[in-house]
C-alpha cells in the first residue's frame, strides 16, 4: 500500500529543527510533570499536560544500539553503504532515544554504551541534521 500521509514537518516538530540550526540539541519537556518525551507530541504523553517547552541538553549521549546498514532501503543512499544507524540515549534527557547516524571512526570499533557527541550539519536541501561521532 502507499504511502505518504504528509511530507511536511508538523508544527510541534519545529523546535528540534530550529535548535539544531543553531547548533543546539533540544527535546520536548513537560513543565507540569517534569518529563521528557520523544517524538514531539501536541500533549505530554505522560500527564496529558500541554505546557511543553524545548529544553536544551548537553548533547553527550551513549549508544543504546546500532546497526551497519548494508542494503539500500532508500535508493538515494545506495552509494553511501554501509552507513551506521544508531539509537542514542542521553543522561540529561531520560526517556528520549534519538535515531541518528554515527560518522567518522571505524565501524567495527563501535560498541553499546559508547559515548557520543553531536555533529550539526545541513543536508542538501539546507535542512539541519544532527549526526554523532564517538568520543
Amino acid at each position: 500500500m502507499s504511502d505518504a500521509a504528509t511530507n511536511e514537518m508538523l508544527p510541534e516538530f519545529m523546535g528540534f529543527v530550529d535548535n539544531a540550526r543553531q547548533g543546539r540539541l533540544a527535546f520536548p519537556y513537560c513543565r507540569i510533570c517534569g518529563k521528557f518525551h520523544w517524538y514531539p507530541m501536541p500533549r505530554c504523553p505522560h500527564c496529558r499536560g500541554n505546557e511543553i517547552e524545548w529544553r536544551q541538553v548537553s548533547g553527550r549521549g551513549q549508544l543504546f544500539s546500532f546497526t551497519r546498514v548494508m542494503h539500500a532501503f532508500d535508493k538515494s543512499r545506495a552509494d553511501a553503504l554501509p552507513y551506521v544507524v544508531a539509537l542514542i540515549e542521553f543522561a540529561d534527557a531520560p526517556g528520549v532515544r534519538l535515531v541518528t547516524n554515527i560518522v567518522g571512526g571505524r565501524h567495527d570499533a563501535l560498541r553499546i554504551g559508547q559515548p557520543v557527541a553531536p555533529v550539526f550539519l545541513l543536508d542538501g536541501k539546507g535542512r539541519p541534521v544532527v549526526e554523532f561521532r564517538a568520543v
Binding site: A5, L10, P40, F66, V69, D74, V85, V99
Partner: peptide, 30 residues
C-alpha cells in the same frame, strides 16, 4: 512504503536512512 504514513518517522528517521523493518529489528537484535 507504509512508513511514510508516520509523521515522526518521516521527520526524524528517514533523513538518517532509517526506513526499513530490517533496520528496526537489527537495532532490537543487537
Amino acid at each position: 512504503g507504509f512508513h511514510d504514513l508516520y509523521a515522526g518517522k518521516l521527520a526524524f528517521e528517514k533523513p538518517y536512512g532509517f526506513s526499513g523493518q530490517p533496520q528496526y529489528f537489527a537495532l532490537w537484535a543487537r
